[in-house]
């Protein structure tokens, strides 16, 4: 396998559950060493993609390859090179967190090697502030997620499949999570990071794919996607900001006394900031765009899309 062959390669992938088309001609390409943000609303097919990548579900048609191999046929060999964090982590209730972590590290160790790096494990346990002696049934969702994250990150693998890994983590732990993912990237690991919150993957991802109703609607680097994003800016200025209203890249302009709220296209932030600077800024707040805003704007109000009702798509998430 050459250095630049994709780690994950999916071409026209289709997966149907009865009448529901969970994956609809999905295309996905992830290069070695890349952190790839996988964005989509609930029920868009993110988890189904993960499970096809793990070789637990068999695609109905299309090509899917991990490290150039078929995940359905070569599941075991491929699983040696990857670690997975499920979206809704269920653990064995009468094992402790520490036991689950060790169990996975041992299962993943290469044949003949019974040892794994306890140093890396202990370090992660400390950074994520987990008590490994508690039975997993007493853990909250966030703590169960930490267990899965630690066992994935402590493993010596090339690819991390993370399905909404921060959904239950508090903001402090999210900072730790961002650090460890950056470290993993520095070590050359590839990461597929799914989420329904744009801001979460923005900070980490080299490239982002947006999935909607089982189909990738946008894919590219963050700057390539800038044209899609709009930042909401709330600003209080000494002088009126009225002059911004007429600009082509400023939208939804509202002014109320000194307070002004508007949206600006992602690739024109600089011009707006320059104009604002001269107005005497008292306070400024900028919100990143949410995925929902983005999808609504570009694909109309039919979020679930293509006649598949949101209740049925939800089931296949």
């Amino acid at each position: 396998m050459s250095e630049n062959a994709p780690v994950i390669y999916a071409q026209d992938l289709v997966k149907e559950f009865g009448p529901v088309r969970a994956l609809d001609n999905l295309n996905l390409n992830i290069a070695p060493g890349e952190v790839h943000g996988y964005l989509g609303p609930n029920g868009a097919g993110k988890s189904t993609t993960m499970r096809v990548l793990l070789g637990l579900l068999r695609p109905d048609s299309g090509v899917i390859q991990l490290f150039g191999r078929d995940p359905w046929k070569d599941a075991v060999a491929l699983h040696r090179r990857l670690a997975y964090v499920p979206g809704d982590v269920e653990l064995w209730p009468n094992l402790t967190g520490g036991e689950v972590i060790d169990m996975f590290l041992r299962l993943r160790a290469n044949e003949g090697e019974t040892n794994f790096s306890t140093k890396r494990r202990d370090d992660l346990i400390e950074r994520f502030d987990l008590d490994p002696r508690k039975k997993t049934r007493t853990y909250s969702k966030g703590n169960r997620q930490k267990v899965a994250l630690i066992s994935a990150l402590a493993a010596d693998v090339d690819l991390l499949l993370l399905d909404e890994p921060t959904a239950g983590l508090d903001p402090l732990m999210e900072v730790v999570f961002q650090e460890v993912i950056k470290e993993a990237k520095a070590q050359g690991k590839s990461v597929l990071l799914s989420s329904h919150i744009l801001a979460q993957v923005e900070a980490l991802s080299d490239r982002i794919s947006i999935i909607r109703a089982g189909h990738i609607v946008e894919s590219g680097t963050l700057s390539e996607l800038r044209h899609m994003t709009r930042t909401t800016i709330e600003v209080e200025t000494e002088k009126s900001a009225q002059q911004l209203q007429g600009l082509s890249f400023v939208h939804d302009f509202h002014a109320e006394g000194e307070r002004t709220v508007f949206e600006v296209d992602g690739d024109h932030i600089r011009e707006v900031m320059d104009s604002l600077a001269g107005l005497g800024i008292r306070s400024i707040v900028a919100h990143p765009p949410t995925l929902e805003q983005l999808l609504m704007r570009h694909y109309g109000d039919d979020l679930s899309g293509r006649g598949v009702s949101s209740s049925t798509t939800k089931k296949v998430s």
Partner: peptide
Amino acid sequence: HARLGRAEAKPSLGTPLGL
């Protein structure tokens, strides 16, 4: 009340048979 358990797994747990 649930008691605290082992922080580390016994080696036997790390195999499919152990699981």
